[in-house]
């Protein structure tokens, strides 16, 4: 069984982002970029499946500008076998990415697609569910644990009240939550090896996908700032302030 994982290039989670002065978006020039953390979890899970013999090949997919090659290389260095990049400088929204992924799935016929539940830049939490819809496949979102059995996969999901178990017919789309695994670091020899692994580059047109954005971004602004308050010395002072100043207890 092939496993396809999607990896997105995003501003590194440690970077404090800055909104552009003209309100058109967020400053990305000279900012550290990394693989979306949820996608690292997806890559790790796919590699573990191959190591356990449940998967035969792990394909890392990305869509976006040429620099997304680096993100795919990171996945290859972790252990993925080869990459597919749909290269475009157009703004890509979740529905467009889901359509590009569907084109890749139609071509590669994986038994499982694993994606991060959410990208930490646009925070949409939509691409995996959209892909499952377009393929007519089952979906296991917010996965905490995966157990592959014959022709089916059991997914433990993180839900509002705790955990939920569902069983999916394969092929399926999985979206990862934080506790699914702890992604490995790529070793230096594996980083070197990854340089020789193949990455296929495609254009959205060649896949017959219209990637035009469905949502027009009118403006991007700073959120209202919260002012730092005061430090109190004693619990008695705190209780007094909460009662008489804030009026919350």
């Amino acid at each position: 069984m092939k496993v396809l994982v999607a990896v997105k290039r995003v501003i590194d989670y440690n970077v404090k982002i800055r909104v552009k002065a003209d309100k058109t978006g967020v400053e990305t020039a000279n900012v550290k970029m990394s693989m979306n953390p949820f996608d690292e979890i997806a890559v790790e899970e796919a590699i573990r499946m191959r190591e356990k013999g449940a998967a035969t090949e792990v394909i890392a997919f990305s869509a976006g500008p040429a620099q997304c090659q680096e993100t795919i290389r990171t996945a290859l260095a972790m252990g993925a076998d080869r990459g597919i990049l749909v290269q475009t400088d157009a703004e890509l929204q979740p529905l467009a990415v889901a359509k590009l992924l569907k084109a890749a799935v139609d071509k590669e016929q994986p038994g499982l697609v694993i994606v991060g539940k959410q990208a930490i830049d646009d925070d949409s939490n939509a691409t995996g569910q959209m892909l499952a819809a377009l393929l007519g496949w089952s979906q296991g979102t917010f996965a905490n644990k995966l157990t592959v059995a014959d022709g089916s996969i059991e997914v433990k999901r993180e839900v509002d009240g705790g955990l939920e178990n569902i069983k999916l017919k394969m092929p399926a789309v999985i979206t990862t939550d934080l506790r699914l695994n702890e992604p490995r670091y790529a070793s230096l020899p594996n980083i070197m090896k990854a340089k020789k692994k193949p990455i296929e580059t495609l254009a959205p047109d060649a896949l017959g996908v219209d990637v035009a954005p469905r949502l027009k971004v009118l403006k991007v602004e700073e959120p209202p700032k919260r002012k730092a308050g005061v430090k109190v010395k004693t619990v008695a002072e705190l209780v007094d302030k909460l009662k008489n100043e804030a009026g919350v207890i």
Partner: peptide, 20 residues
């Protein structure tokens, strides 16, 4: 967790974007 799971599937089947 219910809305986040269901709504994007609905949106894609309708061929529309989702406002998350």
């Amino acid at each position: 967790s219910v809305g986040k799971n269901l709504a994007p599937r609905v949106a894609a089947l309708l061929d529309v974007g989702q406002i998350s």
